[in-house]
Design a protein around this nucleic acid. Structure first.
Lengths: 213, 213, 213, 213
DNA sequence: AATGAATGAGAGTTCATTCAT
DNA sequence: GATGAATGAACTCTCATTCAT
């Protein structure tokens, strides 16, 4: 390690950071190695000293982005006692992640290159959605054990909740139909997801009937 | 009009049809005008006689595809008396559409070019998801009027139902993580969406409790 | 045929002619497609409309050159009655061909790319040396039948005569050690080849002793 | 001198040896300085500390190769009393040298770069063919003095003999038309060269008629 | 109206060479 | 003296677009 590897790693990161900007702006096909080199502040030749080629660099970028962006998503979700409050917190967190500009750009790229780089789709999936499902499943299981939720398929229920969180805003943001979801919209989506989910899986009738519509 | 325009319109359609095959197989960037010309059985020059350029042709393709593919989606949904059966029929229909290879390819293209062609994202949205929401909203309104569902925001409820339909399979298909959703999976998603939706918005307790979870 | 093919063939020839100049001057590796395009008076893109790539163009050039340069080599060799005179005429012809600047350049290229383009080496061989051997073999056979030469292996004798023709000058010219063989040198080589050959294979003692060494 | 220069000379040789492998395998253009450095076990920078550049290194390689490979060619040729046996031994030796893979590769390189590096062609010529001619000339002179051969131009006769040795196999090997000459072929070429040479220049009629054709 | 030959800018990639360490 | 990271010019090849026929 030490100097050599540090230096090497630093330069790699510098290049990946430059690549991030260009890929995010132009997409995989639209990004040119020349532009990435310029953005990273290195020569084109240096790009090829550090990465085998454009596709390799793209793979590094996706993995880097996936790892960095999604690392701390679920670590900070407070463990509330009230299922409704906990669900709302989780949903909010999910939406923030899903709708962040960086992740939207990443999603678009991964989707558009899914045929060319199937392994990157897997990386993306594992780093985000898959972990969200695992986290939710675990949380639901604990609630079921505590008698606060009822379902015999926690993993499917988890996926349903996450699907509900994508009501209205997710696809519109992915398609860039709206530049950014408003707080009011997010609140509505989160509230709606929690209500519907608890109506289906909650054991306490008060929880779902409390705020009747 | 008549002969000239007919002829003209026929040729345009011939070109767009050729473009469809190539765009669907290669994506926007990957499709070359040469290959589209060959596929359409015309010369490259003719392409430019009928369309300003690649991006214009792409726009025509997306609109054509959106219109043709999504035209008959909701026309054939039987109007069942039982809300659960009706919802299941609608959900199945939705999923068939969403997961058809052609529509997945179109979705990927529209998403990946959302930054470059924002107007195409709108076309796509209006031709599919937007109309699905409108249809669902309308249907829910009628059910509410008939006393079979209860909600004060039919449009939002509609969007939630459609979001529930995308549980599990939609993103995985879009990312090409799985080649095709199995019938069993589809059934599970559809059944789950109907159950959760009716638990939240159904008025007849039997409807939602009938098939216990 | 007619206009299209004529036009096409003419342009191909125009390009091959441009390629010939550049390949001959720079060799295969040293020749750049840009320079060939400029030399041929067409754009780089046009090169690729007519030839799949550099290697294909090179193959066309070699075959064209081989065909054109060597076509008429042996057609005009006079059929002398005197074996010594006939051999001298053939030898002279052979040397002219072997030592012509164009053929030397072609030889150098074919030799240097023999590993990369083995089929071109075969083309070169078949178009020149191989035909020379066949011609000589045939001629010797007729002389043997006429009782003017004696050998039971005409083909090997032919190859020996052609080898003798390459005494002194051939390798030096191939290596560019001398810019051009002088007439005196050529005469000496030709005379020497004839003398040695007839000493070995002539039946008339006068023929080989006539011009004493 | 001594330590510094020894050290320096050793490193130079180490580099040249690495270069030999790569040049022989890839040719001049195909060899990259990176690969030569790796093969020689030094850094790219060191290459340039010892040699001005690729062309200089190539020149050193050619000279080294020429010197080393051809050094001992004629030292071990037994001095037979019988001219026919001696000629056969010499011819065999010549062919072994000419057709050895290393020398073929060197020949191809020198020929292909003859325009770019004319001085290397001279080096190659002087180290091999030229010395072979000198050796043969000397030998013939001694045979003439001993009354075993007759010619008034020993040098030209020598060149003729060496040309005869290249019958059939030499060009085919240079063009890689055949991977390797068989022993039978070599024997035939050697035998044929000796026979023809002695028919022309031998004084003992028995020598050339002994093995009649 | 239809053609397709021609274009040329720009893509990804390689590599001999330099120079700060 | 040795290193190898950095360079940038040059490479082959592609393709959207134009225009004379």
């Amino acid at each position: 390690m030490s100097e050599h590897e540090d230096h090497s790693a630093a330069k790699r990161q510098q290049i990946v950071s430059g690549a991030e900007l260009v890929f995010t702006e132009c997409g995989y096909e639209g990004a040119s190695m020349s532009r990435i080199a310029a953005q990273a502040g290195v020569s084109k030749g240096t790009l090829y000293n550090y990465f085998d080629g454009k596709s390799t660099l793209f793979a590094w970028f996706v993995e880097d982005k996936a790892r960095r962006n999604l690392d701390s998503i679920f670590q900070t979700v407070a463990e509330e006692d009230d299922p409704a409050a906990a669900l709302a917190a989780i949903a909010l967190r999910m939406l923030e992640m899903t709708l962040s500009p960086d992740n939207l750009a990443l999603y678009r790229m991964v989707v558009s290159e899914a045929q060319t780089f199937p392994e990157l789709a897997t990386v993306f999936w594992n780093s985000g959605p898959c972990r969200a499902i695992a986290y939710m499943t675990d949380w639901i299981r604990r609630q079921v054990a505590a008698g606060r939720l009822a379902t015999d398929n926690p993993s499917f229920a988890a996926e349903q909740f996450l699907a509900l969180c994508q009501t209205r805003v997710a696809m519109q943001c992915r398609l860039q139909l709206i530049p950014k979801a408003s707080d009011a919209e997010i609140e509505q989506v989160v509230g709606g997801a929690v209500r519907v989910f608890l109506a289906a899986y909650g054991v306490d009738p008060l929880a779902s009937h409390g705020s009747s519509r």
